[in-house]
Write a protein that binds this DNA or RNA. Structure first.
Length: 849
RNA sequence: GCGAAAGUGGCGGAAUUGGCAGACGCGCCAGACUUAGGAUCUGGUACCGAGAGGUGUGGGGGUUCGAGUCCCCCCUUUCGCACCA
């Protein structure tokens, strides 16, 4: 140990030792309880940014904590190395995507090692290597076998800037998730994965994880699947044998329907208009809507527009004849592409009816709470002609609804759907918003879809023993939107596995979200050449105990990986439904944008980035890590501060200096042993030590890292205040200081592991902390709680005095000592004591008159 | 527009969940040591007031002996969703 804290020196020393000893390698067969600590794997863009540092510092704190507690901790890392930027680099700068990616990985791996994150590097994986993407292809074939991977022509979301297809998730809001370019629609033949088969489970299984995931993520998951319960109802077309099927969640309002409204893309529309004089007008209108939407303009921003088709339909409940309209606000993609319009009880229908002066009829009346218990009756008159100014969308009681009048919405919805089913014009139904996952990409830098097209045998899956379908070394990177692989004859031309004749390979590659849907299973068995992973090995490690990453992945990645896990369960690879027990979505790291008052995520283009390497060089990895953990709660935005990190260095330096001052005396365990009484100051320090152990143990479990660091600082301040001189300290004082300092060093290690290891060694424990496990200190419960309580005494609610009491003071004793207090007696003298409120361990309040 | 969450010093944020508001850190002020200080150390730092004391957790009301914390209304901010029938 040097007298002065030189971060670089001790960081190099310990990083080297960790690498040599392999202490972070997690053995698969181990009697200790496992803990799988996982951070979202990074895209190898070339450089670590502060968001990464924060993510990995959080994960590492937890990994260390669990390790020191005696768990067998798996803490792996890898690279999400397929994807657009590598290909963009190829297009723009003519570099090979593979070389570019490998260089980036090499550089970022170095940065991670300089940060000293305790990864098991022996398990490192990268998605772009054939031994990884082979299994993407394997899974794809498994899904194909089960009918979960299929091809269809579809209108896809197309990003004109990146010249590629985007999934629904990636084009949410009509803009590209990566470059914010407005998305266009195009017709292409595409591969899809049938995530909709799992829609119900993706909602239902949320209850298995609701205690471990943030509420807002669960809500977004659930919203994305978009389950709605309702009913299908068939409206027969007048003078025809055709029917228009609508989906509604409010079948109870059906007597209020004033029209049936269809989407312009509805396939039935052309048939209905056969021979109608309005046909050209309506087709022109439908075309207009299609054009609007193809231009990527958001529905919802448009004013409602519609056209009466002249077709008539019959309300199967009331027998009423209703006009059929086409309108821009009905989406083909959801439900059946047709709705019943009930303006009195739906905002959109109301707006539409107002614009086109369609009749509005109230069929639901509000009910009061008393009426819910009693016979339901409407509170407002059931006057159908009454003018309605707004739609009333709450549940209520039915009026103007034939035999159903007087029933509550909840009851009517159930009964009416059953009635429709019994009479053959509908049924209860559940629909989902989620659509199948389009995984085809017209890209080079991805896992090739393992399919072959043969003129004779048609579409043939690549046999399992021919995997992987290896990406060629290079291709023409034109950026025109054609699959670059189509221009590589050696790749395209192959033989048909069935007839051995000439055949062509599929030239699409897979969405990179495929790679990240199951990567954390590959860590468990990363060099397995015979399978994606050994299910028996996986059983020992999974599910993931703690997953940490940015909330930008709260929808896409997490919904895909949940889907993938359920599929793996169905093919017998895993035996649970949900892959992640606890999830933490950490906040962004932001910095002030130069010349403004705005705080934005660090980025190159904004010029507000902070280089982790520079921070490590100036302040040391430990200080950088300590600062990001201390500066804000993990889920909050973290506003970068250059002076803040200096505070962290200062703290580490003070701790270092303190240990330097004591280390010779403390390392010598052969001196006089404590035999006498502890001084009052020593007892105070002991109490603080044990309180801190208790607090940090509990805070770390809940990932309250900022308050853990604060508690460390408090303990340090307390040790500083304990003004003993190492040269002359009594055996008792040495004991107390040793206990305090050793605890401090261990508790500090998850936040600043290099300093922790160095100081632990300096205190006389050769070889560092990981030599003897477990090491995490356990608080003495007697000492951890306050020795004495200072209980406030109030008179008529005002604080008037305090009384010192033992922690286990009885209510009666507390009351007695409060009433005996001099100041209190002076106050209550001459007044009547009305009552005395005693809250044990908390307070006494005396009410007088 | 709909939905959710949140508003505490100059700043990031604490507060054992209804019990001494402002822990810890940054910044700032003063002092010490210094040729020097953007190093280090010591002390101070919610607001008003010379003081005793008073006031304070976005605003207004309420429940309670007691409210940052619970309830109602309003304001503001942030984040989600955005014609999903």
């Amino acid at each position: 140990m040097d007298e002065k804290y030189f971060p670089e020196q001790i960081e190099n020393k310990w990083q080297q030792r960790w690498a040599e000893s392999g202490v972070f390698q997690a053995p698969t067969d181990d009697p200790r309880e496992k803990f799988y600590c996982l951070e979202m794997l990074p895209y190898p863009s070339g450089f670590l940014h502060m968001g990464h540092v924060r993510n990995y510092a959080i994960g590492d704190a937890l990994a260390w904590f669990k390790r020191l507690q005696g768990f067998n901790v798996l803490h792996p890392i890898g690279w999400d190395s397929f994807g657009q930027p590598a290909e963009q680099a190829a297009i723009k700068r003519g570099v090979n995507p593979r070389d570019w990616t490998e260089q980036n990985i090499a550089h970022m791996r170095g940065q991670l090692k300089r940060l000293g994150i305790s990864y098991d590097w022996s398990r490192e994986i990268a998605a772009h290597r054939p031994d990884y993407y082979k299994w993407d292809q394997w899974f794809f074939l498994k899904m194909f076998e089960r009918g979960l991977a299929y091809k269809k022509v579809s209108q896809v979301n197309w990003c004109p800037k990146e010249q590629t297809v985007l999934s629904n998730e990636q084009s949410s809001g009509g803009i590209c998730w990566r470059c914010s370019t407005p998305v266009e629609k195009r017709d292409l033949e595409q591969w899809f994965l049938k995530i909709t088969d799992y829609a119900e489970q993706l909602v239902a299984d949320i209850k298995q994880i609701e205690d471990g995931w943030p509420d807002k993520v669960l809500k977004r998951q659930s919203d994305w699947v978009g389950r709605s319960e309702g009913a299908y109802v068939d409206f027969p077309v007048k003078d025809s044998d055709k029917k228009i099927r609508v989906f509604t969640t409010r079948i109870d309002t059906i007597y209020g329907a004033n029209a049936v409204v269809m989407s312009a893309e509805h396939p039935l529309l052309a048939e209905l208009l056969e021979g109608s004089s309005l046909k050209p007008d309506i087709e022109a209108f439908a075309q207009k809507i299609r054009t609007q939407r193809a231009a990527g303009r958001e529905v919802g921003e448009e004013e409602k527009e519609g056209l009466n088709t002249g077709v008539l339909a019959i309300n199967p409940f009331s027998g009423e004849v209703l006009p059929v309209w086409v309108a821009n606000y009905v989406l083909m993609e959801y439900g059946t592409g047709a709705v019943m319009s009930v303006p009195a009880h739906d905002d959109r229908d109301f707006e539409f009816a107002q614009k086109y002066s369609l009749p509005i009829r109230q069929v639901i009346a509000p009910v009061t709470h008393q009426q819910l218990d009693a016979e339901p009756t409407p509170t407002t008159g059931g006057d159908a002609s009454a003018e309605i100014k707004h739609s009333f969308t709450d549940y209520g009681v039915l009026i103007n609804s034939g035999d159903w009048g007087g029933k509550l919405s909840e009851v009517a919805m159930r009964e009416m759907a059953e009635h429709a089913k019994t009479n053959g014009f509908g049924e209860p139904a559940v629909t989902y918003r989620i659509r199948d996952w389009g995984v085809s990409r017209q890209r080079f830098w991805g896992a090739p879809v393992p399919m072959i097209y043969c003129d004779k045998d048609g579409m043939v899956p690549v046999p399992y023993d021919q995997l992987p379908v290896v990406l060629p070394q290079t291709a023409a990177f034109t950026g025109t939107g054609e699959s670059p692989l189509a221009g590589v004859p050696e790749f395209v031309n192959t033989t048909c596995p069935q007839c051995q004749g000439p055949a062509r390979r599929e030239t699409d590659t897979m969405d990179t979200f495929v790679d990240s849907s199951w990567y954390f299973f590959r860590y468990l068995d990363p060099r397995n050449e015979g399978e994606a992973f050994d299910p028996n090995v996986a059983k020992q490690w999974t599910p993931v105990d703690q997953y940490i990453g940015g909330d930008s992945h709260a929808v896409m990645h997490l919904i895909y990986t949940r889907f993938w896990t359920k599929f793996m369960r169905d093919i017998g690879l895993v035996n649970f439904d949900e892959p992640v027990k606890r999830l933490l979505t950490q906040g962004m790291v932001t910095n002030r944008v130069e010349g403004t008052d705005e705080w934005k995520a660090m980025s190159k283009t904004l010029g507000n980035g902070v280089d982790p390497d520079q921070m490590i060089q100036i302040f040391g990895a430990d200080a950088a890590r300590l600062f990001v953990l201390f500066a804000a709660p993990v889920e909050n935005e973290l506003r970068w501060s250059d002076t803040g990190i200096e505070g962290s260095v200062r703290f580490l330096r003070r701790v270092y200096t303190m240990v330097w001052k004591w280390h010779e005396r403390l390392a010598d365990r052969g001196g006089p042993q404590p035999a006498g009484e502890f001084s009052a100051e020593a007892r105070t320090l002991r109490r603080k030590t044990h309180q801190t152990i208790a607090k940090i143990t509990s805070d770390l479990t809940q990932l309250h890292l900022n308050t853990s660091v604060a508690a460390l600082m408090e303990l340090f301040n307390q040790i500083s205040d304990f003004n003993a001189d190492p040269a002359t300290a009594s055996a008792e004082d040495v004991f107390v200081v040793r206990e305090a300092l050793e605890s401090l060093v261990i508790l500090l290690t998850p936040f600043a592991p290099h300093v922790g290891e160095e100081l632990w060694e300096a205190l006389g424990h050769a070889g560092g902390l990981l030599k003897e496990l477990p090491r995490w200190p356990v608080a003495d419960p007697e000492l951890a709680r306050r020795e004495e309580l200072e209980i406030p005494i109030q008179v008529n609610g005002k604080l008037r005095s305090r009384v010192i009491a033992a922690p286990d003071v009885s209510e009666d004793d507390l009351r007695a000592s409060a009433l005996a207090d001099e100041r209190v007696r002076a106050l209550i003298d001459g007044h009547e004591v009305v009552k005395v409120i005693v809250v044990p361990r908390r307070l006494v309040n005396i009410v007088i008159r």
